[in-house]
Design a protein around this nucleic acid. Structure first.
Lengths: 249, 249
DNA sequence: CGACACTTTGACTGTAGTCAATGTAAGTGG
DNA sequence: CCACTTACATTGACTACAGTCAAAGTGTCG
């Protein structure tokens, strides 16, 4: 079902200062580390099945998680794209209405129920951080609703590439933070991207080819993307110039 | 900008036992009432403008709130449909990326910043309740993403009517909780419904007419809807039989 | 009554979906 | 090493669903 559990040293964790645990003192962190377990997953591996009740809450340490809703007739929609230090599951537990799947090599820092809930109730700072993070996710989901409800296929694909560019570090390869240039590698198939954007894989493919022909992007090996001018891509994405668009802020 | 503030008696409030304040003891409630202000809004009145930073956090006491995202070219998407005892805004404040508009006669119980944040930090139960509520909203938003990305126009309209039926009490008129029958009145124009579903008002109108011709629904006065057989409507909506579909659980 | 806002209906268009064939790359086993 | 398989991507031809534009219908309010 998942990789083996490792003992945890939170002090040297890569998300120590960005994750929800950033709200904790060194001492509190020590307590937390005693209930934490790191688990690793392979690409495509299922973390939680739709309608399942998982037995842990987790922070993403590295890798990407897809939240996927599948209807009984097979239609799929990816309803969430999670990066470090996002979290998977609900802090007090509950049945999940969508599946969580690893989209890459993944490592999760898992906190079992109900221990984590008790810990949370006695640490207001952590509680608050979790609330703020959830509110951010909600804002991001609502932004994505605009994309799904109102954007054209071309705008959707461009928006997705912008999201990938912004998350380049998680997507693999490096890019230059503030520059107008980006280079990254896509971890998902055209079908996955389509399920994310409410399109078909054919349409995604066509729109990518069109962007390539217009020289807004360059692609090597179907995976490695170069965006010479992010502003041009942003223009195609149809975002308001001031807003920081994307599924995750 | 809004209705006048009234003094508050939380003990007799209609959402006393359903709202986030249900987490509080009588004594705590008394403290909270001292910082609360009730404000009333008329249909169509703007509560928060897009990109504004409101100065309060609020619970909906009665009425309906729409969260609306508008692009610079005029495209609109309703990204949230809020009912009592949902809340509007963020507990610790922040710039809003969408507008909040009253869809009906509305009364809000408002808590000013930063007072409410301080109150929250010292009341773990309230904090937790807020977190759970936000997680529910996030789940609901993700469910709506499936509708926007994958459902046909007919399924979308049927899903909306189901949502309205479930929220009948808020939408006006009564219905019979567990029965298979529903009667309610729609508080929104066809255009608003379209903006909710990622469609045009013409398409919404056509699909409603089609449902009427198929005798899945009856309509009087363009507003009063009767659903003789909710299961039939559910079938048209294309929901999995087991899931409690809709924007709000 | 007339003005206005909203709804419905119709004719036509266009975007994205469907179905099908071909192309490409990575991995397997003889 | 090379055929072969498999999975994924691209391209093309055609279709259909929903959008657009326009006109007529309905209801409400001053």
């Amino acid at each position: 079902m998942s990789g083996r559990a490792n003992s945890v040293d939170c002090k040297v964790c890569v998300i120590r200062h960005t994750g929800i645990c950033a709200a904790l003192t060194a001492e509190e962190l020590d307590q937390l580390s005693r209930i934490a377990q790191v688990r690793v997953f392979k690409p495509g591996q299922v973390i939680t099945r739709q309608a399942d009740t998982p037995d842990f809450f987790a922070s993403i340490v590295s890798g990407i998680v897809l939240l996927i809703e599948t209807a009984s007739d097979g239609r799929r929609q990816i309803v969430g794209l999670l990066f470090p230090p996002d979290f998977v599951g609900r802090p007090f537990g509950s049945r999940s209405s969508y599946a969580a799947v690893a989209a890459s090599e993944l490592s999760l820092c898992c906190f079992p129920y109900p221990t984590f809930g008790r810990f949370l109730n006695t640490h207001a700072g952590l509680h608050r951080r979790l609330l703020e993070h959830t509110l951010d996710e909600l804002d991001a989901a609502r932004k994505w609703m605009f994309l799904l409800g109102r954007k054209s296929a071309g705008e959707r694909v461009a928006s997705f590439l912008l999201l990938a560019a912004r998350r380049a570090t998680s997507f693999g390869c490096a890019n230059n933070g503030l520059s107008n240039f980006a280079r990254f590698s896509l971890p998902m198939t055209r079908s996955d991207i389509a399920d994310c954007l409410g399109l078909t894989n054919e349409t995604v493919s066509r729109e990518i080819t069109r962007l390539r022909r217009r020289e807004v992007i360059e692609i090597r090996d179907n995976r490695n993307v170069v965006v010479p001018d992010l502003r041009a891509l942003r223009l195609v994405a149809g975002d308001d110039p001031d807003s920081l668009s994307g599924m995750v802020n």
